[in-house]
Design a protein around this nucleic acid. Structure first.
Lengths: 259, 259
DNA sequence: GACTAATTACTGGTCAGACCAATGCACCAC
DNA sequence: GTGGTGCATTGGTCTGACCAGTAATTAGTC
């Protein structure tokens, strides 16, 4: 009878067990996408297996595309998403900017649900992380005089990611993630522009504060509502931005006609 | 300069090399499907690598489904070569059924929204198409005595697709589509099974009828509600199916104890 | 002689410890 | 500051040993 190694496995070999247990930890959010796993030697201790078995377990995860390993560096949890290849959608964007708002519509739906679930299902550890991300973002947004917009965008993204991860629904997290990536890769310039204008920024800051409060206080309905309003505001801001852009274009066209 | 080990590998690690070389030998017909490979120790000699590396190489081939290994026996070349490529998320599904319900949760959200939008935004042309798809599905489901389950599943899928397309949100359609593909490719057997049981089938038929009616009559709230209930039912049915499956497994295990 | 049970020589599975190679960070000289 | 230099840490590989199933062989029994 094995005295160690809380084996849960009848027919499973060690490497399979290692892979399964690590997957479980990843799904539970203990190890998150992008995060660096503990070193192999440390994992051996924690899981109670030899390095050979552990390495075969990691090999399984690597084959599945779940982790990514670099010599001298370590193994990181892959930012696995592909809900599907994103290429087909990318074309749509270029030809039909309207699709941007369709994307925001879907994203609002998912963001609302994730906020609701985060408020109702989130653990205390989740709340701690969410608060930390929120503070990082809010402190930077308030304190700095000349903010680095790109950095603020990253902090913003990290905050929303923390909220979605608290939903404990990996599929939701990944879908949301891929949509956000798609959004940023296509209109990052516009989004960046939003942060530069004072009015939108204070509005966004307020909504973030409300969202944070609702989630950590477990107010599910409130959290969903705030998230929906947040995305709706962003959508409206981008719409205004686009309109203004068109107006500028028209005037420049008029200018060209006379030259 | 390595004197042995006819390395052909720039950046490749040993295990990858081992896997590649063995694949090559299999493709060249040196090792044929069904055949027993030489023992690990013998392969180590022949390939000039340690057993640890050799085993990691075999692990790669096993992950790809190219070989099959049994303790005390050996590794045999699999008879049927790799099936369909599976997305990274697929692996998570197989080992963690919990993720399946996470997927259904997200899908219900999107399906609900698409039904709502279809009812409120759908054009008359959309409604005609939806009705046609619905009739095709319903007629086949009711009339035929011995139904071809796979065909019914296709008609079902076509109906839902028509509804989602009436939402006039390509992003929503696309996201929903990829989630559905993911679902079907992982649990198509179970879904198929649902159609075979009489009770679930009548329930599904009823819900389809209600969904169709709500959408074509422009009753947005009702459509969303029905869609949510529909997905919720399916989720519950799959849950029951899984439970029953486990019960059967347990009883067969008990059976084995007495033999 | 035919059948069963123990033996034994394989097989893969796991472990421990050693060393090599790449990375990245801290420290130090300039 | 800037650019090296070292060193601690990480993954990559090897070795040799032992454990655990498998199956063929052998010994024992009827």
């Amino acid at each position: 009878m094995p005295e160690e190694n809380q084996a849960l496995s009848p027919g499973l070999r060690m490497p399979e067990q290692v892979a399964t247990r690590l997957e479980r930890l990843i799904l539970d959010g203990v190890f998150r996408p992008g995060q660096l796993l503990p070193s192999e030697r440390r994992l051996c201790d924690r899981l109670g297996v030899s390095r050979a078995s552990l390495r075969e377990g990691l090999r399984i995860l690597r084959s599945k595309g779940i982790i990514d390993t670099r010599q001298g560096h370590g193994s990181t949890v892959a930012t696995l998403l592909p809900v599907g290849n994103q290429s087909p959608l990318m074309h749509l964007f270029k030809d039909h900017p309207r699709t941007l708002f369709d994307l925001l519509e879907v994203r609002a739906l998912l963001e609302g649900e994730s906020a609701r679930l985060a408020a109702s299902r989130g653990t205390s550890a989740d709340r701690v992380l969410i608060t930390r991300r929120y503070r990082e973002m809010a402190d930077y947004a308030e304190s700095a005089e000349s903010i680095d917009v790109e950095r603020l965008a990253r902090l913003d993204h990290a905050f929303h990611l923390a909220v979605s991860q608290a939903s404990h629904n990996p599929v939701l997290v990944h879908t949301l993630q891929s949509l956000t990536d798609l959004l940023l890769s296509s209109v990052f310039a516009s989004v960046k522009h939003l942060y530069h204008l004072p009015a939108p920024r204070t509005m966004i800051n307020q909504q973030h504060a409300q969202l944070h409060e609702a989630v950590v206080n477990g107010e599910a309905e409130q959290a969903e509502q705030v998230a929906l309003e947040h995305l709706s505001s962003i959508s409206q801001l981008l719409r205004d931005l686009e309109e203004e852009h068109e107006r500028l274009e028209r005037s420049s066209m008029r200018l060209e006609e006379w030259q």
